[in-house]
Structure formats: structure tokens, C-alpha cells
């Protein structure tokens, strides 16, 4: 999958303008992992032995693209659709790593951006009113909101 296909999906699914990523480079690694970084990094990376480069942008599945939680937190406030807003109690549960039952949402089934107020918390997988928590285990914490 190339950069244009990924950007096309983000625009269609979340209303994320492809211009947001205009000056950046996409690097595809093994296991369908795509990283995003600056053009200067992309120029230099061949001359060093990297452990990692830039930020994990998404994982490519056979029929899906899953945005990373960190990218969602960085650009999630620019999204215009397929957003699920959580109450304080729900947000706390989400950050702690719980899956959630959602009473009402305009989002359609598939990956959604999970927010509390103006905070983009991460990504979830919505299916028939339930959100599967996609927050990486290392990021899950107990928190007071």
C-alpha cells in the first residue's frame, strides 16, 4: 500500500486532510508497520544504523489500516468524523485499558478515534456498539480525570 492510499483512507474514514502530512515522509517496515518522519531524517537514515526512525504511523492489515495511538493523539483533533466521545467515567476506563459499551454514536463500525472533550485519547475498534480498546498496554495507566 502506498502513501496516497493511506492518506486517502484517512481522509475518507476520519476526514483527516492529507495536507497535514504533506511535508513528511512515510517509511514502510516489515510486518506492515508504517513510520512517519521528516524529509531530513529520511535523507540521513541510510548513513546510520537505526533502532527506530520517526513515529509509528499505522499498521497495515489485509483489509484495514490501524492508526497508531500516538499519531491519533498528535493529529486526532483534526479529525471530523468517526469520532466517539467519552464521558469522564468512560475516558478513565479507556485509559486504564477497558473495552467499552457505547449507548449512542454517529460513528460507523470500524476503527474510531476516541476522545474525551478535546483530548484525543487513542484508537478503538467499534463493532455493534462496543469499543475494543486499542491502547497499547504500556500506555495504560490509572488516572484521575
Amino acid at each position: 500500500m502506498d502513501k496516497q492510499e493511506i492518506l486517502g483512507y484517512l481522509e475518507e474514514r476520519f476526514g483527516l486532510d492529507s495536507g497535514l502530512f504533506g511535508g513528511l515522509e512515510f517509511l514502510e517496515e516489515s510486518k506492515g508497520r508504517v513510520f512517519i518522519t521528516t524529509k531530513d531524517v529520511a535523507k540521513i537514515v541510510g548513513g546510520v544504523r537505526p533502532v527506530t526512525v520517526g513515529l509509528l504511523f499505522c499498521r497495515l492489515g489485509e483489509h484495514s489500516i490501524k492508526l497508531s495511538s500516538n499519531i491519533t493523539q498528535l493529529f486526532g483533533n483534526k479529525a471530523t468524523k468517526n469520532i466517539v466521545f467519552l464521558s469522564e467515567v468512560e475516558a478513565k476506563k479507556f485509559i486504564e485499558g477497558e473495552d467499552l459499551e457505547i449507548q449512542k454514536t454517529e460513528a460507523t463500525d470500524g476503527y474510531v478515534i476516541v476522545k474525551h472533550k478535546d483530548y484525543p485519547l487513542g484508537v478503538g475498534l467499534l463493532k455493534e456498539g462496543a469499543i475494543k480498546n486499542m491502547l497499547p498496554k504500556a500506555k495504560r495507566i490509572k488516572i484521575e480525570i
Binding site: V41, R49, V53, L55
Partner: peptide, 11 residues
């Protein structure tokens, strides 16, 4: 990752 840093190469 947490702070949204894009311009790094870790060695």
C-alpha cells in the same frame, strides 16, 4: 512517541 516527536533516528 508519547510526546509526538517525528524528527528522530534512535541509534
Amino acid at each position: 512517541e508519547k510526546l509526538g516527536v517525528l524528527n528522530t533516528i534512535i541509534t
